[in-house]
Design a protein around this nucleic acid. Structure first.
Lengths: 180, 180
DNA sequence: TCTCTATTTCTGTAATTACAGAAATTCGGG
DNA sequence: CCCGAATTTCTGTAATTACAGAAATAGAGA
């Protein structure tokens, strides 16, 4: 079993990861490269990734750049080899946190910014229906609150997050004023 | 101000919502229709939506079907009008919950299912590298745990969720064994 | 039941996005 | 400083996805 791509389960994993990416707005090649690196225990260079996944060199180059911008893939240097090599996070908490943080930064934060401007602009006008003003404002507040919650919870240590996750809905029992 | 599309802020909101959809794997027209209905205080019929957004009738028909499958848009009957009319949720918590529930059902649950099968299949083989087996297994457990946590928390009453959100990272202080 | 209108489904096309290969650039080693 | 390998950027093409218009169906009212 010299090659990971000869393991049918690994192939299935990589292909599915690619499809998942597509469904969530991540380019398929990028997700596949990530999946391959996640399953690898040794750093791989770009040419190697091309060969395993059957992608063009340029594609892999761009994909690696994208994954590095999410900070879930890292470049490492291999002794006596000029080529860059790459490895992926294997800690899935870290991975999730980095992905969500980056997507927030890229997509959510600008949305909040825009909604804030629209809400402000609507507040200055008296010729727009009240329900329009109100709904834009409520959307702004809602997404803003979610984002603040996220930014806040994100700072907690991983162990605390794991505890909270195990707790699930029972976290409600800890709230002041809840019975038991 | 007879027409909502004459309010520049409303247009900007709808266009941005469409772009956001694209970035998260939701077709732009679908997201725009949703945004229009969210900003409307009266039910709208399909032809009306076509006209406001400049979309083809078929597109609007499919978009409405999609939004109804998420349960965030509802068909209502208007007295003395044969045409179907549509309204959107205005409660943003409800909306978020319905969207996440549906995406979990469509994309996450099948992924967990597949990962479970792959992990099981790998466990039966002795000719695959241990790290491959381990990493597929860990991914399965991780996503499974997240999904269970979500399903559990989702059942809490909205008011509890709001409380938890306001609490943010301070929720950690309520955990047994934390100081203060 | 028939007719007229609303709605959905189907099909071809347009637009977008992803991709491969080529060209240009960067960078390490001698 | 020059050579050669590695990498990135650029550009045209392929594949996918979204869309418009036409055709088919469903359904209310007479």
């Amino acid at each position: 079993m010299a090659d990971i791509m000869e393991i049918p389960e690994a192939r299935a994993f990589i292909l599915h990861w690619g499809e998942m990416g597509s469904e969530w707005g991540v380019n398929r090649s990028v997700a596949q490269i990530h999946a391959l690196l996640y399953l690898s225990d040794k750093p791989r260079h770009a040419e190697d990734i091309c060969e395993k996944l059957g992608l063009a060199r340029s594609n892999v180059s761009n994909g690696l750049k994208e994954l590095q911008s999410y900070q879930i893939v890292r470049r490492v240097h291999m002794e006596g080899d000029r080529r860059d090599h790459f490895i992926a996070d294997t800690d899935l908490w870290d991975m999730l946190m980095k992905i969500t943080a980056e997507r927030k930064r890229r997509e959510i934060d600008p949305t909040i910014q825009l909604l804030g401007e629209l809400a402000e602009s609507l507040d200055k006008r008296d010729d727009v229906p009240a329900h329009v003003r109100e709904r834009v404002g409520r959307m702004h507040d809602f997404i803003g609150n979610l984002a603040n919650w996220y930014a806040d919870v994100r700072r907690l240590p991983k162990s605390t997050l794991v505890t909270l996750m195990k707790l699930g809905g029972r976290v409600a029992r800890l709230l002041p004023g809840s019975k038991a």
